[in-house]
Amino acid sequence: MAMATAHPTSRAPARWQDYVQLLKPRVMSLVVFTALTGLVCADTRLNPILAGVAILCVAVGAGASGALNMWYDADIDAKMRRTRGRPVPAGRVQGADALALGIVLSLFSVMLMGMAVNWFAAGLLAFTIGFYAVVYTMWLKRWTAQNIVIGGLAGALPPVIGWAAATGTAPLNAWLLCAIIFMWTPPHFWALSLYTSEDYAKAGVPMMPVVKGAASTRAQILIYSLILIPICLAPAATGLGGPIYLGVAALGGLVFLLLAFRLYRSRAGEAADPRNDDGLYDVRAGARDARNLFAFSILYLALLFATLLGEHLTGVAPLELLR
């Protein structure tokens, strides 16, 4: 009997799909999209194969960050409903294997970026992987309620890497794309955390609703949204965005602000009052407002970057309001 429990085949076999899951393909696709936008917006003629290699390196680097994150966070992932099915907490992949995959892919992506494209872009990619894996995952995430605010820099850098890959430089417009994602991250993640805060509390992750409460989080979402919209409009003034971009940013920004205001007025994230029969309904209604902003935030960011991408690929003249 003891022999049977020590049997090496007693756990589920790791399939190659489990290793793909370690790379967080959905996050990777968003990173690829924003990096591609940065690369195209640079308006420089880069060899298309080298451009493809640059995007591949960003994708693999993002995947490496995901694997390192899943290795380190296996303990808290196991406690949350959303993440307990991931390969490491589910026992399909050993933590050491996830770590090895993350390190190997990090090295391959940075080295190939440096050799194929340029070392400035490679340096930015290495910084982004290190920032996400070490500064965010190992330090900020478990330590401060500002974790996703500061850690959001890692998710905001891919357009700068794309721009750097195309030109070897990182001008103001590249950092403007970075600023859009950076300021978008807090309202996006806090809206999600308002209806998943129980999970975060159970895992001991100091997300804003867990530490400061739902009301403070809703107020901060509104404040960040008010700062975000002017930043989203700025590319129309700096020669990066054209008239279509201005329209999308303005109209989408209005909807974003409306949803953020409705969320601010709601009771999202607050526990049901057991003395009130309608308590459960109230929480559901509040969660709906948080879900609406969460879902629209994804659409808004995708629309902004898709419009910029479309304008630069089709040659729509930028507005350059400040020139």
Binding site: M3, A4, A6, H7, P8, T9, P13, A14, R15, W16, Y19
Partner: peptide, 16 residues
């Protein structure tokens, strides 16, 4: 043999 690899494991390893 208790250490003999099962069919599922062999298939998964081949895929990897």
């Amino acid at each position: 043999d208790p250490f003999r690899e099962g069919e599922d494991f062999a298939k998964a390893r081949r895929g990897r």
